[in-house]
């Protein structure tokens, strides 16, 4: 079936294509990140809907976050989140030590500045997924050493 290589290639090309278009015409880097994030959001919404259709109701917020870290992450990125931390006040930090979308890049410092481009889609993916489970959030990502990265989820109380 749709081999995951196809998704990886498509994602890379999406990032490259958007930036190529921005370089030639109008628009600055910030717009590209937003666009990628928005695309991720839509995909996240769609995926979580398909994914949770036969599952039991979630107990609470933490239960949902665990689901994102385990089942959701495994489906999309072929592994679980390595570490989930929370302050129990609406902030969750998801750490992935070998993030799939950064694995194909050199692990040194050379491309560190380009890493955010490759995380924006995933930030949107998490935000979209959570949004369809009734949680409004802000998701940001940071990389200090490739290919490890952290996603910080800030829950917005309604």
């Amino acid at each position: 079936m749709a081999d995951e290589a196809l998704f990886l290639l498509l994602h890379n090309e999406m990032v490259a294509g958007l930036y190529r278009a921005a370089e030639q015409g109008e628009g600055e880097n910030g717009r590209c990140i937003t666009k990628l994030e928005n695309m991720g959001f839509r995909v996240g919404q769609g995926l979580i809907e398909r994914f949770t259709k036969d599952t039991a109701r979630f107990k609470d917020e933490l239960d949902i976050m665990k689901f994102i870290c385990k089942d959701f992450w495994t489906t999309v990125f072929k592994k679980q989140i390595d570490n989930l931390r929370t302050n129990h006040q609406g902030i969750y930090v998801l750490q992935d030590n070998k993030f799939r979308l950064l694995m194909q890049m050199s692990a040194g410092k050379q491309y560190l500045e380009h890493a955010p481009k490759y995380l924006a889609f995933t930030c949107g993916l998490i935000r979209g997924g959570l949004s369809n489970l009734g949680i409004k959030s802000i998701v940001t990502a940071e990389v200090s050493t490739m290919p490890a990265c952290k996603f910080q989820v800030m829950i917005q109380k309604m």
Binding site: M1, A2, L10, V43, L47, T75
Partner: peptide, 18 residues
């Protein structure tokens, strides 16, 4: 397996929309 192909399909859809 099915989810993986849906990931691709949905991502492609988001790209075309964009």
């Amino acid at each position: 397996k099915k989810m993986n192909s849906e990931l691709f399909t949905l991502t492609y859809g988001a790209l075309v929309t964009q």
